[in-house]
Amino acid sequence: MIDNVEYLAGQLQNVTLSTTWPEPQDWSANRLLKQFKTISKLVASRTTRKAEREFFYVELGGFDTHNDVHETLDELFALVDEGLDVFVKEMKAQGVFESVVLVTTSDFGRTMTSNGKGTDHGWAGNTFVLGGNIRGGEIYNEFPASLVEGNLYDVGRGRMIPKYPWESVMLPIAEWMGMDAQDKSTVFPNLQNFNSSRLLPTSMLFNT
């Protein structure tokens, strides 16, 4: 394990990125940007490392807000916007953006009603997907017909039941990455619990 870490560190030291990134002293202001820069170096070194396809995980916390929610969200969304902007430019400069997909996820959604200090932990939520081969500018699946408290999908205090499963987004991404059809039930063991109409076709989410 130590040898692998030292080898990878040596590989990354020799990587020169294709775009201009903020100076290191700026990274403390946007920890997401630092993660994207490391991933950009890993992508740039893929041939040397003999990597065919990879998953990378970045995180940005602080969204579980109850007070001053508008100010906090504005700051967090600005960090996300900056990180994505620089990362996408780098992927395009490297000529690999058509082979890159980014998808957001969270461990919970938010309620439609207030707990007195903002929204509370919920269930259903939104996600976004972007990439060079994504059919962008679209809202997939259906937006709830009503967000009024007590609607058909409200289980109490504005907690919305998800109408579509997480697999609706992740299944087409896995298929696009080359997952074999016979492996679907192993990779996504919960597929049997959902009607196929609740799953996005790969051809709908991707251009090819």
Rank of each mutant, 00 (worst) to 15 (best):
M1S: 14
L8V: 15
L12R: 02
L12P: 01
L17D: 05
W27H: 15
N30F: 01
R31F: 10
F36G: 00
F36E: 03
S40P: 02
K41M: 14
V43Y: 07
R46H: 05
A51L: 15
E52M: 12
N67H: 01
N67Y: 06
D74C: 09
L79S: 10
L79R: 08
V80E: 08
E82G: 00
V88R: 05
V88K: 11
K92D: 09
Q94H: 05
L102F: 10
S106L: 05
G109R: 08
R110D: 03
M112Y: 07
T113H: 03
S114W: 11
G118T: 10
G118I: 04
G118K: 09
G122F: 04
W123I: 05
G125R: 01
T127V: 15
G131S: 06
I134V: 14
R135I: 14
I139V: 13
N141E: 10
L152K: 11
Y153V: 10
V155M: 06
R157C: 05
R157H: 12
G158L: 04
R159F: 09
Y164D: 05
Y164R: 02
L171F: 02
L171T: 02
P172A: 06
E175M: 13
E175K: 15
M177L: 11
D180I: 02
V187E: 05
Q192E: 13
N193R: 08
F194C: 02
N195I: 12
N195H: 14
R198P: 11
L205N: 08
